[in-house]
Simulated assay, not measured.
Amino acid sequence: MSHMTSAEASARQELSIRFVNTVAWRRRDLVEERIATPDAALKWLVDVELADRQLVTQLKARWKSAPREAEAFLATMHALREAIYQIFAAQIGGGKVDAAALAALNRWLGTPFGGLALGPAGSGLRWQPTTEKVVPEMLLKPIAWSAVSLLTGPRAQKIKQCQDERGCGSLFVDESRAQNRRWCSMGDCGNLAKSRRHYLRAQAED
């Protein structure tokens, strides 16, 4: 089952939040993995503008003769994502941050930012490789820094998890004035929740 919120599709959404939300239905026993293959990982990196199609073509060609490198990259990507999610979840719940998750994120902060730099892209800037021999893991560094920036900035207390009863569990940053947003998207989970409440009230009145 596919589940794509309007918030996730927004270019304004935090990179690290979009990354965590590549696992859908986190409040269910059976989650939905959206980055299940190395090719899916590369497609996602293009979608969030951490890689361009030329780089993806280069990596795909390289991985044909080095499938273990592709699988290792995918495992690294998943590990970073789950470490960030665990830290976000602790922030949301007010619990203690898992030491292993924190150590995993800190390892990314302790590595040089070589191989990647800001460069012009249209009217703005984007991350771009600076070397011909690309180390795929370097493409994940901006995600780690996005998580750290969010966790240590003024919006840290605004990180929330969708309360949809079906088990959505997508994360979002609550920018509402009242700070009472409960759903990742009013157009999706919010409307469904309201429809369910209306149905139950109608049933109770019959």
Rank of each mutant, 00 (worst) to 15 (best):
R68T: 11
W108G: 07
A61Y: 11
A72P: 01
L59M: 03
G115M: 01
V20A: 08
L80V: 05
I35R: 13
I17Y: 05
R81C: 11
A41S: 07
A103Y: 06
G114F: 11
W44I: 07
P38G: 08
A117I: 09
A75R: 09
I92Q: 12
D52Y: 05
E33W: 04
L45S: 00
S123R: 15
G110R: 06
A41T: 04
A66K: 15
R81D: 13
E71R: 09
E33Y: 02
A70E: 01
T111K: 13
V46Q: 09
K43S: 13
V31W: 10
S123I: 05
G93I: 00
E33F: 02
L59R: 03
R68H: 08
L118K: 12
F73T: 08
R62H: 15
D29P: 14
F19M: 03
V56Y: 09
L74N: 03
D98N: 15
F113D: 06
E33I: 05
T76Y: 02
V31H: 13
R28C: 14
F88D: 06
Q54G: 14
V20N: 09
I84F: 12
R107T: 08
R26H: 10
S123V: 04
Q58D: 10
P38E: 03
A121S: 15
A117D: 10
V56H: 04
A70F: 13
P67S: 14
F113K: 07
Y85T: 01
S123G: 12
L80S: 10
E71I: 02
L116Q: 10
V97T: 15
W25K: 10
K64I: 07
R26T: 04
R62V: 05
D39H: 11
